[in-house]
Design a protein around this nucleic acid. Structure first.
Lengths: 151, 151
DNA sequence: ATGACTGCAAACTGTTTGCATTAGG
DNA sequence: CCTAATGCAAACAGTTTGCAGTCAT
């Protein structure tokens, strides 16, 4: 038996690409590795910075992330701050959601997922259902201090 | 007693603005009226087009919608198509969520809301909690015909 | 070999910002 | 009046697109 929700290894993720008929190019390998190593959602820009500009072109990061999402390899987050973030889905297909502090922009993972609501959607006849969910609020710290960290 | 979930009237919405200390300017009145009349989420661009370019500057639409969201007057949607959409919240504070067809981009309202999950967030000490939730899938029509409406 | 993929450059779109002017209370 | 709010112009950021060269298979 394996553990409930573990991040896929780089090899497992690469296998997903191979199975989908995608070529295992150098940029893709590096992007996958960075996603596996990441501890939270990354924007295309952040991802590219971590790889170093020598690794590949920023455009390639966009293209790869789009493909990876289509394969269900990564989950897309819309934090409402102008850029999309991506995070590897767990081995069991689960993913996290976050609360974003309206004041300090801090992202706090929440272990709650409306996976059950997807059943409602499937009942409508939709296939390949996924979802994005983000919470927004003012974190405890920012409620306390009159001005802990505006930005 | 009043009905469960009805769209606020223009006057009710304007009162909200007044209560918040915002001035009832001409552009704001028109934007509120357009939101009340709307039957679904509108992007700033769509909203501005409905008003007619004579009504006000597009920038004003952005500023107003941002303010309105802060007041909890409108709900923000992130359909992942590059632009944010706004919709008036119901009189009882409820709102709708949507399924977006990955193929034809159709938006289908879903009467399911993870309002209960917000309790989890509040339990963490967050205040003024709100959320965005969108579902994505392939609608029945697009599953049928091999190519009903690619775009 | 050959088609998928990348890199580069440039276009685009949605959104934000600064500042002078206008108008709401 | 006096300040919030608007309009205008311009900057910005993230993302997309076209095309020629390159690399995985």
């Amino acid at each position: 038996m394996k553990q409930a929700a573990s991040t896929p290894t780089t090899d497992e993720a690469l296998q997903t690409l191979r199975d989908a008929g995608l070529r295992l190019t150098q940029p893709r390998r590096q992007i996958v590795a960075a996603l596996v190593a990441a501890d939270g959602p990354l924007s295309p820009r952040e991802l590219h910075q971590q790889l170093g500009s020598a690794a590949c072109d920023p455009v390639t990061v966009y293209r790869c992330l789009t493909d990876f999402e289509r394969l269900g390899l990564v989950h897309r987050h819309e934090f409402g701050d102008g850029s999309t973030r991506y995070q590897l889905v767990e081995a069991d297909g689960s993913h996290l959601h976050y609360v974003i502090c309206r004041h300090c922009q801090r992202k706090d993972p929440i272990h709650a997922c409306p996976a059950d609501l997807e059943a409602t959607v499937r009942a409508r006849g939709y296939a390949g259902v996924s979802h994005t969910l983000e919470f927004f609020g003012v974190c405890p710290d920012c409620q306390q201090g009159p001005d802990p960290e505006p930005q």
